[in-house]
């Protein structure tokens, strides 16, 4: 399979704090990579670096073989290809749901208005929110907002989707409705990098698991093996912290 995202030996530091050191990761087209690790291990920062929301001090990140960095002139064009959904609900509060979905395609891609609207309505229908098209974000629950945020990212036809703990701020009963959407995207072959604390979901969605701890990738591999037969003590300990028996 063709490589779509290549992270080569990147390091991220704030003054004298090292967030991560010499991390490398390759994502192939259609692959779902799930990153887990203790809080503060830098997994969210890693996602933000892919999108150049954070700069890196060493190494390079390539999307389709093209280097991404925060000073690139064509950064906006690169970001079009990367869809990102954040932990906090980040819909634009002054726009209706439909307007939220159509803003970027119309302004950034200069897409046709009629087609864009048609696509937006189809996608909303798919996540069960067609009736909310003219509502404002404040009228939606957290789970509904996150589903809209996912659709908004999809509207740009990204080559890769980044999900940054998208259920971490949700009430527990809303987690499933959001993860179901992500799972269905995984099944239809979307390329995704997901940071999450939901282990059951990770197991269901992931082609490949990555465990980050202490500023580095400690273990990575096939999802089944990762959960059933972890190789390192650190991962075993981490996985045990999620079970009660």
């Amino acid at each position: 399979m063709e490589t779509i995202l290549e992270i080569k030996n990147i390091s991220k530091r704030y003054d004298d704090i090292t967030v991560f050191e010499k991390i490398s990761l390759t994502v192939k087209r259609g692959e779902v990579v799930v990153i887990v690790g203790p809080s503060g291990c830098g997994k969210s920062t890693l996602l933000r670096c892919i999108n150049s929301l954070e700069d890196i001090q060493e190494g390079e990140i390539l999307l389709d073989g093209v280097v991404i960095n925060p000073t690139s002139k064509d950064l906006s064009q690169v970001r079009e290809k990367i869809g990102m959904v954040f932990q906090s609900y980040d819909l634009f509060p002054h726009l209706t749901i439909l307007q939220n979905l159509m803003l970027a395609p119309l302004k950034v891609k200069k897409a046709d208005k009629k087609e864009t609207k048609k696509e937006a309505l189809e996608l909303l229908d798919r996540v069960g929110l067609l009736s909310k098209k003219d509502s404002y974000p404040r009228q939606l629950s957290g789970g509904q907002k996150q589903r809209v945020a996912i659709v908004r990212a999809l509207m740009m036809h990204p080559e890769i989707l980044l999900f940054d703990e998208i259920t971490a701020a949700l009430d527990p009963e809303m987690v499933k409705e959001v993860l179901d959407v992500v799972l269905s995207l995984a099944r239809e072959g979307r390329t995704m990098v997901i940071v999450t604390h939901e282990m059951q979901f990770a197991r269901a969605a992931a082609d490949r698991m990555v465990f980050i701890d202490g500023a580095t990738i400690v273990e990575e591999g096939d999802a089944k093996e990762f959960f059933d037969d972890p190789k390192t003590d650190r991962l075993r300990k981490f996985l045990r912290s999620f079970s009660y028996d």
Partner: peptide, 9 residues
């Protein structure tokens, strides 16, 4: 950030 990640300048 979310505007930027949608590709808006």
């Amino acid at each position: 950030e979310s505007a930027a990640s949608l590709g808006l300048t």
